[in-house]
Computed example of a mutant assay.
Amino acid sequence: MKRKKMLFVLAAALLLGSGAYALSGEDVKENTPKATLADQNWVFTQAVSSDPMNPENYAEGSTTHCTGVLNLCGIKAPADENGNPIIEPNSPLAQRIQNKDTSQGDVFLRND
């Protein structure tokens, strides 16, 4: 009788332990924050074309020289896996680039 009781307690402990382990694994997956991409400064170089929506027309660099109100000088955006800025079509950033809207601090203009 004592042996059956001990086996029962051992089996219950194993069962509870494995259940707790499985639950803790699910919690970690659900509660782990997704990585966010850091914004970088990009200078509009027109390397491929004059299209400001083409990410290949930008080079990573300082935008401190971008002072003015007339022409696109640079943007602030995260990099994609190819080392180009992420400019999603019809995104708020894309709209600000097209409208030369500097109100969010991620579009920079120059006067020349």
Rank of each mutant, 00 (worst) to 15 (best):
G19Y: 04
L15N: 01
E81A: 12
K2R: 14
A13E: 03
A47G: 06
Q46R: 15
C73R: 00
F44M: 06
N71G: 05
K2Y: 07
N41W: 04
P92G: 00
S49P: 08
K5M: 14
A22K: 04
I97L: 11
Q95T: 09
E56P: 08
K5R: 14
L16T: 11
P89F: 03
V107S: 03
T45Q: 06
S91L: 04
G17C: 06
G68R: 06
I75W: 09
T32L: 12
P55H: 07
K34N: 08
F44D: 01
A38C: 03
A38D: 02
K34G: 03
R96S: 09
F108K: 01
G105H: 07
V28F: 15
I87M: 15
L72N: 00
N57G: 10
T36I: 02
P33W: 04
V107E: 04
D51T: 15
V43H: 03
L15Y: 07
V9L: 15
D106Q: 05
G25W: 10
Q46H: 13
P55M: 05
H65M: 08
P52D: 07
M6Y: 02
N57V: 08
P78M: 00
S62G: 04
T67R: 06
A38V: 04
P89A: 11
I97F: 08
K76W: 05
C66G: 00
N41D: 15
A13Y: 04
P85K: 04
C66T: 04
N99H: 11
N99R: 11
L15K: 03
D112C: 13
F8I: 11
N54R: 08
G74N: 03
S49I: 06
K100Y: 03
P55Q: 07
S18R: 05
G25T: 12
V48N: 11
A79G: 07
H65V: 07
N41H: 10
Q98L: 12
R3M: 05
C66P: 01
P78S: 02
E60H: 10
T67F: 02
V48T: 13
L14I: 09
Q46N: 12
N99G: 09
G17M: 03
H65F: 12
C73H: 03
L70T: 15
D27K: 14
N111Q: 07
T67V: 15
M53F: 11
L109T: 00
T102A: 15
L72D: 01
A12L: 13
G83N: 09
V48E: 12
D51M: 15
N84S: 09
L70F: 12
V9N: 04
E60R: 13
L23F: 14
S62M: 01
I87A: 11
S62V: 00
N84A: 09
K100Q: 10
N111T: 11
N82T: 12
K29S: 05
D27P: 00
N54G: 06
Q104R: 12
G74Y: 02
Q40K: 14
T63E: 00
V28R: 10
